[in-house]
């Protein structure tokens, strides 16, 4: 007897919970490639979902940034363990979302998990690499140390649905930031699966909040939000009707840190996420605190 399809209608991931969109909307996600077959319904987030996500991220910031770097590293490594356990599901998601062959999808998933592991090693090393004992002309220790910027809004890459997604989320949360992620509009399924991974690992609720929906509708609310401290515009490249320069101008209203998309002006392009990453993305969402401490006596 033929089995009845288990059709999926996914929800958002906000504050460690899976709420429906406040708007009640959802949209059909179809597979890439020639067939364009129906995959699932994703929640179509609204500006109020973005608002709720920012509130959740702000609420989680004190705890996550206050955790010891060593602890953050452990928590992130645990995520990699759970990712590994879901490997097959991610491979299926990537095949459907990106229209690639199975071997290619397997390579992408492996690279994504390896990348997460790589970033999981960084929390307790950032301060050593990016901090410094500064020479000063006086009887003082002068120390500079990196601190997280705060709540980071992330426009996830439109095309690289898993490797790209992980390559933008992980570097932001390594240092203690909390994030609100607007997923790829047409390829949100790996992000939805990632939210299930995060919910079942040890990452505190609210550290990563994932909103699916129309990038052009949601991004301006994130860019203008007064309680968002930085915004990553990587996903503005190849997004329908998104003008990243306008988003940057809007973000300037509250002096947000802005990570521009690669490429020039309207020709913004999505970077190739395959090469080994640098410190750039981690460094983009850090503030340097410098302390003068009297020496001797």
């Amino acid at each position: 007897m033929a089995r009845v399809d288990v059709r999926k209608t996914y929800k958002l991931y906000i504050g460690g919970k899976f709420p429906r969109s406040e708007s009640g909307r959802s949209y059909a996600v179809v597979s890439q490639g020639r067939s364009q077959s129906f995959l699932a319904n994703a929640a179509q987030g609204s500006r109020k979902d973005v608002r709720d996500a920012v509130v959740a991220a702000r609420g989680a910031f004190a705890g996550w940034s206050g955790a010891t770097a060593y602890n953050r590293g452990q928590v992130l490594y645990r995520v990699a363990e759970v990712l590994e356990g879901r490997r097959e599901q991610f491979v299926a998601d990537v095949i459907a979302s990106e229209g690639v062959t199975r071997p290619r999808a397997e390579r992408l998933v492996d690279a994504a998990i390896d990348r997460w592991v790589w970033y999981a090693g960084w929390p307790d090393k950032l301060a050593q690499v990016l901090g410094n004992l500064n020479p000063v002309a006086g009887p003082y220790f002068n120390l500079s140390a990196p601190e997280p910027t705060g709540v980071v809004g992330i426009l996830a890459p439109q095309r690289s649905s898993l490797l790209g997604l992980i390559s933008v989320i992980a570097p932001a949360i390594v240092s203690g930031n909390t994030v609100v992620v607007l997923t790829s509009e047409d390829r949100p399924l790996p992000a939805v699966t990632l939210s299930e991974v995060l919910a079942t690992s040890d990452v505190p609720g609210g550290v990563v909040n994932i909103v699916t929906g129309r990038t052009a509708e949601l991004a301006p609310w994130l860019a203008s939000h007064h309680d968002v401290n930085a915004i990553d515009l990587t996903g503005a490249a190849n997004a329908a009707d998104v003008d990243w320069a306008a988003l940057e101008a809007s973000a300037a209203g509250t002096v947000k840190r802005v990570l521009r998309p690669a490429g020039d002006g309207p020709d913004a392009v999505e970077p190739d996420f395959a090469p080994a990453p640098s410190l750039r993305r981690m460094r983009a969402f850090l503030e340097t605190k410098t302390v003068w401490h009297p020496k001797g006596t």
Binding site: R51, V54, R58, W221, H225, H226, D227
Partner: peptide, 14 residues
């Protein structure tokens, strides 16, 4: 109230 006035969501810093 600030949201209605400015059109952007506000935060606890304000």
């Amino acid at each position: 109230r600030q949201k209605l006035r400015t059109g952007a969501y506000s935060g606890s810093d304000y």
